[in-house]
Nucleic acid binder design. Structure first.
Lengths: 156, 156
DNA sequence: TTGGCTGAGTCTGTCAAGCAGACTTATCCT
DNA sequence: AGGATAAGTCTGCTTGACAGACTCAGCCAA
């Protein structure tokens, strides 16, 4: 394949999600842990790093700060998912699914995602526009409209 | 929630996939780029880092080294996905899907995944065991069998 | 009204990791 | 013998991760 990957979607996505603690933070927020110290102590993230990552996630529009106030406390902020953040759900579920299969714990998974309405467990499946559900081997990548021919440096 | 995340599947998965260049490398291998220098120049990864990541991915069982020989060249090795590696396909597709939606390029995506048999585009969908296809908001996490009560340090 | 508590940070110094650029190695071809 | 090539290793600089201490704002109780 003679296509550049300079503008690849994976690269652009990893710009936003690619740093070490990002998914840990998103996991916490997804399960309902929204406050700085709760996230920090549960995920065991260094303060500085958490500060930086939260700022980046807000900057990128995946989280937003929402004021809250505990009785007898001053107003503080908690972190909630925006719609773009919520849309990462399939990524999280796919990762958990992979981890539960390939890095299993004795006794079963520590965390299960379920359909709120019926309580049944949730998985991700691959599906093509024609309704088939291919296995990974039945899938291929092809260049899209904005694929760029790769620039090969000429010898000089 | 008073559950520890010390053994969370996301943590265990990120141990394997969480470093900066890992997904870039997997992307290359998924699209059929399997050789050291091809991966390095296309993804623009420092040599040292690529060496380290490939070794880690082999160590974790996501890639394997396969000997090959170009005409008039000595035998070398290329890197191919193992079954656990191939099983990451839904994660990659979910990430690409998210990126194409939330970090779009003018003119459309640079890379499209398609069903090999029918050529139709592939997406991931969330589905529960009862056959529903919930949106992210209709989904919840709950502790599984190996969830551990969180240890809260007592003040002393 | 002073002093302490709490959540959410910032500051500082150390140490590991990322990275670029040069060098190495093994094999093949001419 | 000399050159080409793929796949590395080596060296040194720079950036980021991290722990531990410090800060800051508002609230409360004495």
């Amino acid at each position: 394949m003679r296509w550049s990957t300079a503008n690849c979607t994976i690269s652009r996505t990893m710009e936003v999600l690619g740093e070490k603690w990002t998914f840990h933070i998103l996991r916490e927020v997804f399960v309902g842990i929204r406050r700085f110290d709760d996230i920090r102590t549960r995920a065991d993230i260094p303060r500085q790093v958490l500060t930086d990552r939260l700022a980046a996630l807000i900057d990128r529009g995946l989280l937003r700060r929402v004021p809250y106030r505990l009785p007898g406390q001053r107003e503080r902020y908690e972190y909630r998912l925006t719609q773009p953040g919520l849309d990462l759900y399939p990524v999280l579920v796919a990762m958990v699914q992979w981890g539960d299969e390939h890095l299993p714990l004795d006794g079963g998974p520590p965390l299960i995602s379920q359909h709120r309405d019926c309580g049944e467990e949730i998985t991700v499946v691959l599906r093509c526009a024609a309704g088939h559900e291919p296995t990974p081997r039945e899938v291929a990548f092809r260049p899209g409209p904005t694929a760029q021919p790769r620039i090969v440096e000429s010898a000089d």
